[in-house]
Every structure is written in C-alpha cells, then in structure tokens.
Simulated scan of single mutants.
Amino acid sequence: MSGTASRASTTPPPPGGTDRTAQTRRWLRARRGAGRARRAGYAAYVVLVLLLGWYGLFAIGLFQALGHRRPLVEHAEAIARVMPSGLICLALAGLFGTAWDALWRGPVTPPGADVDWLLALPVRRRPVLLPWFLLSVGVWTLAALLIGFTGALLIAAADLGDTGLLTVACLGSAGCLALLAVAAAVGIERSPGAADRLRRATPALLLAVLLSAVQAVLAVQGYRSTTLETVELWSGPWGWAAQPVLAAAGRDVPVWPTALVLLLAATATALAHAGKALGNLPTTLLRSRARACGDVLAGILTVDLRSARLAMTGGSEPRRRGRIQRWAARLAPPRSPRPSSPGATQWPS
C-alpha cells in the first residue's frame, strides 16, 4: 500500500485534475485493435526479410565457416592489435550517434496526432509515452546486438577466443551500451540546457571519434600506446564495455569484472532516471519533434535532402527562440516616447 502511495505521489497529476488515463487507453485499444495485428505482422515481416536478406546471409555463412576452419586466422595479429582502440571507437560512435539523434528527434517521439489530441486530455504522460520509449530501446538494442554478434564472429574467425564466450561478452556489452545511450538521450531531449551543452560540445565529441578511428588505423600498422589504451579503457562506459570482450579474447585484463559492474550500475541508473523523466517532457517539445520527423521523412521520400537537413536543424528552434525571448524580456521598455538623441526621428503622435 505504501509503495502504491509513493508511486502516486511521484507521478505528476494529469491536466484538469481528473485522471482519465485508464479509460482513454481502453478506448484507444478498442479503436486500434482492428488493424494493430495486421500492422504488427507487416512490420515483423519487413524486419525478418531485411535481417535474413542483408544480415542473415553474411552471419550464417561466417558461422558455418567457423565450424570447418578459421578464415581470418592469418589476420589474427592485426585484429588483436586493433581490438582495444577499435572497440572504443565503435562505442564512442554509437554513443555520439544516439546523442545527436536526441538533438532533433529523440528516443521519445510519438506521432503528431497523439501529441495534439491525446496529451491534451486529462491523462498521465508516462503511460502514454512509455511505448514510444520502449520502441526506441528495442530498435537501438537490436542494432547494437547485431553489431555485437558480428564482432564476436569476426574475432572468433581469427581464432582469438571461444565463440560462445565471445558472443556472450559482445552481446552483453553492446546491449548495455545501447540501453545506456537511449536512457541518456531522454535526458538530452528533456533538458534544454543539456541539449545546448551537447550542441556546443559536438565538434569536440566528433573530433574524439575521429581520433579514436585514427588510433585504430595506426594500431593495425603496429603503432600502439598501451598506456593510452589503458587510460581509455577506464575513461568511461565506452572503455568499460570493451574490457569483457578483451578478456573473452584472451587479453590480459585482470580487473574486467570491476568494469562490468561499473557498466551495469551506470546503465541501471540511467534507465531509472529516464523512467522518471518521461512524465516531464513538455508538449511543445514533443510537438516540434513530431513535426520534424514528418518533414524529414517527406524530404527523404521526395529526395529533397536540403529540406530534410533543415527539418533536423529546426527541431531545436523552439529552444533557441525561447532563450532569445527570455533575454529580450529582461530589457527595460523606454520610459519616454522622446528620442534619446537630438538627431533621432521623432515618434508619431
């Protein structure tokens, strides 16, 4: 009973004072139930065709090759050299891509009709926005797991570790990074200050990703710095996620369980904060994001990339305009209609 009371106290009350969340969701399920199964089946069919056609053939062929021989064993030394910096580069690129996506679209992007009509009703925001957050979590996690499984197969093809251990390590690290990235993106979407700081830090973050890619290329050529790699492995979640994979590949990483605990703790903390932040997303922000997504999709379908790019950059326009309006509101109005200088134009009477 106390747990229910505490949850109710932390959930913001719906507009209007009367909670109609349960009735509204039941009505929506009844209205959408007729075509929901058909749409879900079609989406599952499209995803299955894409996975089997583009990803499945490669993964199945490589997995079958592992049962007979190790096709990349002649490149084992180069793969072993590039693994620390290469894994960090992939992790940084994934985190940067998710953060950049949160600047204009975000992990919580309901359709415009839901924002304009559903959120205007006396309903709680979190139950309405939670499915869209879970959809983003599923998409990003699926992409991360596919990349992680490919990495496990490539490392095993070089005979650098057991396929089962590598698969568990790569899938676990990739999944934690995806969950952490999506949860952090909710904070960026919710907070204008965090979005502005990220926007200002974008050149530095992009430079860090490029430098890590250059470091990986140099590692393939034999130019490595073990001290720099050690610092990077402990510098943040991108390095913590790489340590279990390196340990599964036979590298000397003695305290990788500590890095794994730090990664799991950071992921759980970020998910907890993201769940609380779902109910505080402003309607104006969600409406601008929904329109930006529609404009980007229209620009892509009409091969008008300029319109798509303008729609992406315009997703943060309400934040910039609000900051300018707050600055202008602090300006004192003129106390007299007379001009401040003798040569200025007189005000009309």
Results as ranks from 00 to 15, higher is better:
4 T>L: 11
8 A>F: 05
13 P>I: 03
14 P>H: 07
14 P>W: 02
20 R>F: 00
21 T>S: 09
24 T>W: 00
28 L>H: 04
32 R>S: 10
38 R>D: 11
47 V>R: 13
51 L>K: 00
56 G>H: 07
61 G>H: 10
61 G>K: 03
63 F>G: 09
64 Q>W: 11
65 A>H: 09
84 P>T: 01
86 G>L: 05
87 L>G: 04
90 L>H: 04
92 L>T: 01
92 L>K: 08
92 L>R: 09
94 G>R: 10
96 F>I: 00
96 F>Y: 14
97 G>I: 02
100 W>C: 04
101 D>H: 09
109 T>E: 14
110 P>E: 08
111 P>K: 02
115 V>G: 02
117 W>Q: 05
119 L>H: 05
122 P>Y: 02
123 V>E: 01
131 P>K: 05
134 L>K: 06
136 S>F: 03
136 S>L: 04
140 W>T: 13
141 T>D: 04
141 T>E: 09
144 A>W: 07
145 L>M: 06
155 I>Q: 11
164 G>C: 02
169 A>E: 04
177 L>Q: 08
181 A>W: 11
186 V>F: 03
188 I>H: 11
194 A>R: 15
194 A>Y: 11
199 R>C: 00
203 P>H: 11
206 L>V: 13
206 L>W: 09
209 V>R: 02
209 V>K: 05
212 S>I: 02
217 V>A: 15
220 V>S: 07
224 R>M: 00
232 E>H: 03
237 P>Y: 04
240 W>P: 01
244 P>R: 09
244 P>S: 09
245 V>K: 02
245 V>M: 06
246 L>M: 15
250 G>P: 04
251 R>E: 12
252 D>C: 01
256 W>T: 08
257 P>E: 03
264 L>M: 03
265 A>Q: 08
266 A>R: 12
268 A>F: 06
269 T>L: 14
273 H>V: 09
274 A>V: 06
276 K>H: 11
278 L>I: 13
278 L>R: 10
281 L>V: 07
283 T>D: 13
285 L>M: 09
292 A>E: 08
293 C>E: 14
293 C>F: 10
295 D>K: 10
298 A>C: 06
303 V>Q: 12
306 R>Q: 10
322 G>K: 03
326 R>D: 15
326 R>T: 04
332 A>D: 09
333 P>S: 12
333 P>T: 07
335 R>C: 07
341 S>N: 12
341 S>M: 12
342 P>I: 05
343 G>S: 15
344 A>R: 12
346 Q>E: 06
